[in-house]
């Protein structure tokens, strides 16, 4: 590959923009609703979304709402582990498709070992990580380790991030900036008032990489509202629920465009 994995994320989002679309970042919890079908589900999402986030289940998902909590607990009950996830991801990335990031709380990554994680992840074709309980001040060790393999550590910002801090967080971002739409956990349906769009505009001005909005995005109308203010939107709980209902993720994601 001629470009680093973290650059592949931005390239995928830029390609969507060139074709006049807001990029779709699809999230699914690894091994949910079915451990056996996960590889097919992941391949389907990777074929339909511009970027994919695979949720590594954790026992204490404090930033997540009820849907992803439920998915995480069910996946853990199904015996899902990070080594298993890397194997499944490797099988899917071998066939190409959208860049895949892992979204994981810090502790499963610490248990795997920060020394061996980046190489194993890069070998599996992972493009980067999103770690919701790792704030900017605590990230140096993981960021350094991921940098060595060219993997992104995606930075989250929120509507309550103070302006100067926002600048600092964005300036050093890799992959994309994950702009959380609201205070709260994942999944709760968010309205998209004008001040949220103004905040997205501020993030976009500060960020040298694409900006994707996430948390509570469930409908085509919401996606349309963000168009022009962000480069992409993250669809998480709604996609997890569609998979849970047995719907084809390709059709569901197409319905949001």
């Amino acid at each position: 590959m001629s470009i680093a994995p973290h650059e592949a994320i931005g390239a995928a989002i830029a390609a969507a923009r060139r074709s006049g679309r807001t990029a779709l970042v699809g999230f699914l919890t690894a091994g949910f609703p079915s451990r056996d079908r996960f590889r097919d589900d992941l391949a389907a999402v990777a074929a339909a979304a511009d970027v994919v986030e695979v949720g590594v289940p954790f026992s204490d998902p404090m930033a997540d709402g009820t849907t992803i909590q439920r998915a995480s607990f069910a996946a853990l009950a199904n015996g899902v582990t990070l080594p298993w996830i890397l194997g499944e991801v490797a099988a899917v990335t071998a066939a190409g498709g959208a860049p895949i990031l892992l979204m994981s709380y810090l502790n499963p990554l610490l248990a795997y070992g920060l020394e061996r994680l980046p190489r194993a992840a890069a070998a599996a074709g992972v493009a980067g990580f999103i770690v919701p309980d790792l704030p900017f001040e605590e990230r140096a060790e993981l960021r350094g380790a991921l940098d060595r393999e060219g993997l992104a550590l995606v930075q989250m910002v929120t509507p309550v991030t103070p302006p100067q801090r926002l600048e600092r967080l964005c300036a050093d971002a890799r992959g994309f900036v994950y702009a959380v739409t609201m205070t709260g956990t994942t999944g709760a349906s968010a309205e998209v008032p004008a001040d949220v769009l103004a905040y997205m505009d501020r993030v976009r001005r500060a960020a040298p990489v694409p900006v994707c909005a996430g948390f509570g995005i469930r409908t085509r109308e919401q996606v349309a509202r963000f168009a022009g203010h962000v480069d992409g939107v993250v669809v998480g709980s709604a996609l997890v629920e569609a998979l849970e209902r047995g719907e084809d993720p390709r059709a569901f994601l197409a319905s949001l465009r």
């Binding site: 309980d133 001040e137 910002v157 991030t161």
Partner: peptide, 12 residues
């Protein structure tokens, strides 16, 4: 110790 929280809580 340290502070391992979502970004939403950092300012708080």
């Amino acid at each position: 110790g340290g502070r391992y929280v979502p970004e939403t809580l950092v300012a708080a």
